[in-house]
Nucleic acid binder design. Structure first.
Lengths: 168, 168
DNA sequence: TTTTATTTTCAGAAATTTTTGAAAACTAAA
DNA sequence: TTTAGTTTTCAAAAATTTCTGAAAATAAAA
């Protein structure tokens, strides 16, 4: 397989996966393109490679920069801005996970907590059953969150490996 | 807060969360409705409560049944089919996770594996760098999968708690 | 069998999301 | 300044996804 062909497949696959998980296809493709690039790329190069409009390219890049998984890179004597992807997989995977948790999961958990509180005093069988359902979701989420925090907030890159051995 | 109001908020919140994560809003709402119901519900009741069409209700229910997180329930002397949600949170959360992994993640990982193999022999700096990027994603994914399998394939419901203590 | 209740299907409509592209807003050099 | 290169914005168009509703299929009762 030709290298360029392999890179293209990586970009396409990544874009499709993003779509299925609620990440814009263009955003995922720009990310994949920068991940597979050896050099910083300008907006024009990204537009050309992915065959997308300037507006789309600009917005997608900005989102990735906001996520903190793509960096701006200044090249001396050039007025254009260039972009580079964070290549440390654990680093960017963590950032995406933390960002989505904060933005999408945390508000939901807050509401569930509120619902749980507001149904706590309901003594009807129906009320008690519903309260338990909501409470159970909360407890499981809290536990998973605790585990995720442990995994992520420890700096060591081989934490996962250690954990796997620990669990054997 | 009125119990019915709390349930409605649960349904709305769950539907919105689903949308953000690539799960159809109606599907997520039907799931939430059944989770919050004390009794089995018929298609007509679901249509009425969520104000959705018969086609939509039917398809959403079927998808949940296919996922294995909603069960059909026969009521003697009644021709209608009724539906109940799996109430054990760990059970349904696991089923959703396993299903999405198989359907959406595994095929992507297979392709990445193939890309990785096909770029292995490329000795150019560009080829080596790209190969490493893909390989790194694979390794991290494999590690996370191993951990998830350990968490999920052990039957004990308090495994998470044990693990949390273990990691302290 | 025929009738009646219920479920499933799916083409088209509606809603939502994504993308475009050109104008406006910047920014740095001349 | 003014000019030229670059980035940002956003209304409208396009693409995609979701939903509807009525007809077809299925299944149980008469």
């Amino acid at each position: 397989m030709e290298l360029q062909e392999a890179k293209q497949q990586f970009i396409d696959t990544w874009g499709a996966l993003g779509s299925e998980w609620g990440i814009n296809k263009s955003v995922a493709q720009v990310h994949a393109l920068l991940l597979s690039a050896s050099n910083p790329m300008s907006t024009d190069e990204i537009m050309e490679k992915l065959v997308i409009s300037r507006g789309n390219a600009n917005m997608s890049i900005r989102q990735l920069v906001d996520y903190g998984i793509v960096y701006k890179k200044h090249i001396a004597g050039d007025r254009k801005e260039y972009f580079v992807a964070e290549k440390d997989v654990l680093k960017w995977a963590m950032k995406i996970a933390v960002m989505r948790k904060q933005k999408e999961l945390d508000p939901v958990m807050d509401i569930l907590k509120e619902i749980s509180k507001n149904t706590e005093k309901d003594k009807t069988p129906e009320g008690k059953e519903f309260h338990k359902t909501v409470k159970d979701i909360q407890v499981l989420t809290d536990q998973l969150e605790t585990i995720a925090n442990k995994l992520f907030n420890t700096s060591g890159g081989d934490l996962l490996l250690k954990l796997i051995k620990l669990m054997m």
